[in-house]
Simulated scan of single mutants.
Amino acid sequence: MSTPAHRAALIDGKTIAAKMREEVAAEARALSDLGWSPRLVSISVGDAAASDIYVRNQKKNAESAGVEFEARTYPETTSLEQLIGILQGLNHDPRVNGIIIQRPLPAHIPVKVLQKAVHPLKDVEGMHPASIGNIVYNDLALGPCTAVAAVEILKTLPLSLEGLTVTVIGHSEIVGKPIAFLLMGLGATVTVCHHMTRSVAMHSRASDAVFVAVGRAGLVTGDMIKPGAAVIDIGINRVDGKTVGDVDFDSVADVAGWLTPVPGGVGPVTVATLMKNATLATRMQMEHYRDAYDKTDF
């Protein structure tokens, strides 16, 4: 007897993102009424075409969520020292509430140095070492957007996270590791697999939920998944002109209970998380200024 194809329920990231944008828009209006209209500044260096699609997408999402968005592009010849000076200026400008560093950057600009130069209160991408470090202490202020988005998607499912068995495949500093710490903070039991793991399938097959963020198309197949499990595919790969994830979609869809499509799964929720971080950052800055400079009602 053959198994029915595509048994897994597809998780609609666009619907989740739309609901998040509505919440962000309400918070943005509330902040504007207090004189703090959320405003993001995007920094691109060099070939703007490489990040143009991301910038346009972020701008469109920001405007629909009531967040101001300014895109700045600097020539490829801009030095690291000049860029750090620009970031320091934005850090000290109370009219700017969030800073986004667009990638790729020219070879002479190390991305981590720029990320460290963004003030943690304006780190809407959640990439500053302080932002990532806070997750270890279960103190999520501004978390890395993709990791936070992936966990938010799991939270929409009818699964209790307390005691849930989860495997995270991929251990990058900005996706895999933060996902693991976020899930542990919610009470899940987490295994993290990487290129030195002896049998990824042994771990993933025993798990109620699997997150995969490696960047290798077709890495996770149906025989690696426990029947009825949730599979969150964070990978983005180009294969034969199409965008696909790290999951072999057809075989996994036959086994999983829930599955995120690529595109249309984690991606839209990541951008919505960026906008949510923009309003979170704005409120944190407002409270910081109030506490630092004004002891009366703000």
Rank of each mutant, 00 (worst) to 15 (best):
V212N: 02
D93K: 08
T146R: 04
D123F: 03
E81R: 09
V124H: 02
S204R: 06
P227G: 09
P75L: 05
I225M: 05
M275V: 11
P110A: 10
G241D: 05
M1H: 11
S172C: 08
G264W: 04
V262E: 03
E81G: 11
Q102W: 07
Y54D: 05
V96D: 07
D12H: 08
M286V: 10
G215R: 07
V55C: 12
L105G: 04
T221G: 13
L154E: 12
T273M: 09
A8H: 00
S32K: 14
L186A: 11
K116E: 15
A281I: 06
T191S: 15
A62C: 13
I174A: 05
K242E: 15
F181P: 02
L259D: 08
T78M: 09
V247N: 07
V247L: 04
K122D: 05
P144V: 09
A9R: 11
P106I: 12
G163S: 06
G222V: 08
A201V: 03
T279W: 01
I16E: 01
R103L: 15
L142A: 02
V45F: 02
E63K: 10
I225H: 01
I234Y: 01
L40Q: 07
T156I: 00
L164E: 05
E173N: 13
D233V: 03
K19N: 14
H171Y: 11
H195N: 10
A256S: 11
S172V: 08
F211H: 04
V214A: 06
R7N: 10
V271P: 02
L80S: 07
A65W: 01
V231T: 04
K60E: 14
T243L: 15
I153D: 00
D297S: 12
P261I: 06
E23A: 14
T296F: 05
L142N: 03
A49Y: 07
M20E: 12
D248G: 03
S64A: 15
A292K: 15
V168P: 02
M127P: 00
E63L: 14
A49L: 10
A50H: 07
L90N: 06
H288A: 13
D233A: 06
K19M: 09
Q285A: 13
